[in-house]
Design a protein around this nucleic acid. Structure first.
Lengths: 339, 339
DNA sequence: CTGAAAGCGCTTACAG
DNA sequence: CTGAAAGCGCTTACAG
């Protein structure tokens, strides 16, 4: 490769100024059609490729987009990163990825670094509903940012996420068909908007379907949180007909713990998850879960970011995308014993 | 933030040339101690931060490192990305992440783009044992590259991965203790070196332990590949005492399919996985698996890359790190029925 | 130890 | 439509 051929080389060979060569290559107006063709042919022949760094310095933009996530290793987040990388790539951007480990200080620092690097925009999964507002505070007014999956309470940037209420509506309609009368909730705390909304939706829908709430438990989005929840719900008294979980990892933890305690899902009670993905399908029993429209969320996020990059227009968007329900074994009573 | 204060601003305020200011800030030799202190104080006071883009253009280096993976969304890969991002960050680099989707063309293209972006080095999980050699062919001689998890056959760059033979040794020793006499293999094909080595190790160790090989099945590293394997092994004749799998996803697929066919693991036969991680622990039965030393692999990869960045010394390294065996329920016969 | 000046590779007013 | 020149913000020989 030997990074060598430069705009000046191309211009020299074409016998024109670098100005003209630059215009011809970048499709700027005010260059003759034949000039464009000639310069492009020569550039192609010489294997010329514009230097992104020089261009970034000159234009103040880099075709780089940063993304900050609480933890890369969590399946749902890595799925999201995957989908967003595809979108970026299709649009000719490169992805700068950062892990905040859930610390606000880290979020703040990474946003600053990204900005200094002249990224054209930032995707962020805020680690905290309220504190994450700070992360964006140092950015100049109107800097393109899209919050993905989680929004901060204060609408400081565009947002795309799942419609939590709709997701739980699907769950409850399904549970109602299974004649569920008593329910429990195993979800996450108020740190993220999803924790808040799923919790609120759970109560609202239980009431609406006249189901009795037996017990609730809130902690994090993790397997361990699920085992803790099962323990708590078990100790709280008679088991409910169904446990509605705030994520698939929680659901898996709940079911594993119940098994340890001597209960079988779905024989003794039903369990549902939230997120969708491989875990839900390979787990035994397979999980009935609310499947997030990951690709659509990524596509929508990209659209919003491009919108901000191209024109810094006014109102802040907060878009909710519709999830679907995937039925698994975990919420369907077998008519006859399986074996 | 309003990206404004520049080196010139600092120099002006300090009453020195930008040359001196630059030297003072970057700790270059030949500046007086007091000059250094004065300039630094002023810079700090003004909130000056060096512009990485300008520096990159001038120095030809960017403090950016690229990483190319076959698919970000696969748990083991995202764990690796996570660990490497931590290492990079600690060393003051930013991560440029790309997904090749397993296509060589994409790999080639992303490597080229990274190089043009002036990354200081590249981590790559090659998608193919032989073809991926091409991806690096366009790089100038001595460009810092480290292959992670998978090596190409031709040693075109440093490599860090797991010691597959040792991993399967641990598995076989454990199976021998369980009095396993017949075994089957469910692994991946020859596309990656891990597929090759685990396959070879399986045969070598079966012979060594005088175990009879009942059936083998090779496809990809996926859940579906596991269900296919179970089907094949089941049809091939009497079931073996144990099925050794090339990854946890395969193991989970194998167990699920066996269950569907009416067999219970570990009651009817034992199953082991490879990789380690949450899936192995939350699955039911929990998986006995070879746990890859992900953090150590990342740390070692970083060390090799830094070595290449600092001095382009000679010999190519191919480092194998020792895994450990995590015992789960999937490979241990219960003395008495569980329920 | 410090400064004036060139230059990394582009893009873009400003003239013509 | 095209060119000469400035400049994005640094770093680094080259002098002194």
């Amino acid at each position: 490769m030997a990074r060598t051929v430069t705009l000046a080389d191309v211009a020299a060979r074409a016998g024109v100024s670098t100005a003209t060569a630059s215009r011809a290559l970048s499709g700027k107006p005010r260059v003759s059609r034949e000039m464009i063709e000639r310069v492009r042919a020569i550039a192609a022949e010489m294997g010329y490729r514009v230097d992104p760094v020089a261009r970034a310095l000159r234009q103040g933009s880099s075709r780089l987009v940063g993304m900050i996530v609480p933890v890369i290793g969590i399946p749902f987040f890595s799925q999201l990163v995957d989908a967003i990388e595809d979108e970026l790539n299709r649009a000719g951007f490169e992805l700068l990825l950062a892990d905040s480990h859930g610390f606000i200080d880290e979020e703040v620092r990474r946003v600053r670094v990204f900005h200094e690097r002249r990224v054209d925009g930032i995707f962020i999964i805020p680690s905290d509903r309220t504190a994450s507002t700070q992360s964006l505070a140092n950015l100049p007014e109107g800097f393109p940012v899209v919050q993905v999956d989680r929004a901060t309470d204060r609408p400081v940037a565009d947002f795309v996420g799942v419609d939590n209420l709709l997701g739980l509506q699907l769950v409850f309609e399904h549970l109602a068909e299974q004649n569920v009368a008593t329910v429990a909730f195993a979800g996450s705390d108020d740190a993220s908007i999803n924790g808040v909304e799923r919790w609120d939706a759970f109560h609202r829908l239980a009431r609406q379907h006249s189901m009795t709430v037996r017990a609730t438990y809130r902690s994090e989005f993790s397997f361990a949180s699920g085992t803790g929840a099962a323990d708590h719900i078990h100790r709280a008294g008679p088991l409910p007909d169904a446990i509605v979980c705030g994520s698939d990892q929680i659901a898996v933890g709940v079911i594993s713990k119940l098994r340890e305690l001597g209960y079988d899902v779905p024989r003794d009670l039903l369990v549902t998850g939230f997120d969708g993905g491989e875990l839900a399908r390979v787990f035994w029993p397979s999980l009935t879960t609310v499947v997030q429209p990951v690709s659509s969320i990524a596509a929508e996020a990209m659209k919003l970011l491009l919108g901000r990059i191209e024109s810094d227009d006014g109102a802040i968007h907060r878009n909710r995308l519709a999830p679907t329900l995937e039925l698994g074994a975990s919420s369907q009573r077998r008519t006859a014993p399986a074996s």
